[in-house]
Design a binder for these strands. Structure first.
Lengths: 225, 225
DNA sequence: CTATGTGAAACGGTTCACAGCA
DNA sequence: TGCTGTGAACCGTTTCACATAG
């Protein structure tokens, strides 16, 4: 079974491959894909091993076939309905983001406590009252949810989601969620991420620990080896 | 020097400690902090070693002192100005998010190409024309930027930021950025993260590879060991 | 006893380096 | 000569397990 890091990169490879194909290039070498993704060529080859696909030493990989293969491993068979909890500023940005770019994922329902927002349809997605959460989640066969509510409400909402069988949560809350082991949670704590960036920006340090003393960016305008 | 994983967790610990303190509890044990953060107690103790702080076996850690110590390691000495490139829906959500919760980080300038948005002041932050990027970044002493623009524009904007000495980027774009090695980039590719969550939600698989067959959440309502 | 601090072992992920092949 | 596929080495991180202290 595929490990999380591998999945993450495969998904990224796929997007790159789609762009590559759209540029009219049908084949790609591991080092080309690696350069686009910011990883090593060996990493790319290892990851591709994981989806049981083989390229040719002479011609590299067939982009279309590889996209197909990755899709077979990571995609849902049909369109997958996503629930969005919290239709505030961030929530609306997420609706716009996902329901524009059409993949297999679609935010089919949003939920909010603010009566101002309830009932509205934005970005092709209806906003329901928080009270209707269980009913709509079941009716729409939602198994994956995005949590974009204030941190104080996070665990309570999560408990309600768990009770109706949700098994994946993308958590934009700074709160750590307690869930049973078969439920997958991906935390995106934007605040702490920005603090981390600011830290490394300030210390001019490679995150692997090597101190760099360059101050101006005029020297090496390309990526690390 | 602190490694990225450690930094990330220290920042999370700090928020938990602040809440803990706000609840009127002055001291905390490693296992308590671990439970809140979703990591092991040993992990917490290792991380705390990294900030050169020692607790007492009898009384655990002093929350206030530990917050202080973490701050000394990861915070800027004064308030740190952040630039936001792209004042669209996501950009505005980020402004609201950061300039409400007051830490040491502050988004002091936003940039956009849309003349509709330029000149406006939202969430205590002025939106400048994209053309003024270099001038404002220099004047405001910005060294860290948030990139919330369409993927096609990402590398071009990044090159302009690098030219004026930016050394940290929080990248919400799906594009991999090419930067010199002393510049730190944190990628938050929301689309690919959601695809990953949907994948693990569907397969009911522990991301470490252990297949779980539970379908309903009624069995174990608490966190993994 | 229960908690911390920490050397040492275990683990997982990445990279190396080379065999095999067009 | 390039490339791919892959066993083996490497390296950073996490966990274990125990010495130490109240």
């Amino acid at each position: 079974m595929l490990r999380h890091r591998v999945i993450q990169r495969l998904i990224i490879y796929r997007r790159i491959l789609q762009d590559w194909l759209a540029d009219g290039r049908p084949r790609i070498y591991s080092h080309e894909l690696a350069a686009q993704a910011g990883v090593t060529a060996a990493q790319v080859r290892r990851d591709i091993m994981a989806v049981d696909y083989a390229g040719s030493p002479a011609r590299g990989y067939d982009a279309a076939e590889l996209i197909e293969r990755i899709g077979a491993m990571v995609d849902a068979p049909e369109t997958e309905p996503i629930g969005l909890i919290g239709a505030g500023q961030l929530g609306q940005a997420l609706m716009a983001h996902f329901n524009r770019h059409a993949g297999k994922l679609r935010i089919v329902a949003a939920f909010d406590t603010d009566p101002e927002r309830v009932g509205r349809v934005r970005h092709g997605c209806r906003c329901y009252a928080a009270d209707d959460l269980e009913e709509v989640v079941i009716k729409e066969h939602i198994h994956t949810a995005i949590l974009a509510v204030p941190g104080e409400a996070a665990q309570a909402v999560t408990d309600r989601l768990l009770a109706v069988g949700i098994s994946g949560i993308l958590n934009f809350t700074p709160t750590h969620l307690h869930v049973p082991p078969h439920v997958y949670v991906e935390n995106v704590d934007i605040g702490s991420l920005l603090e981390k960036v600011a830290y490394f920006a300030r210390s001019h340090v490679d995150p692997k620990g090597v101190v760099q003393c360059a101050v101006n960016a005029t020297t090496s305008p390309s990526a690390p080896a």
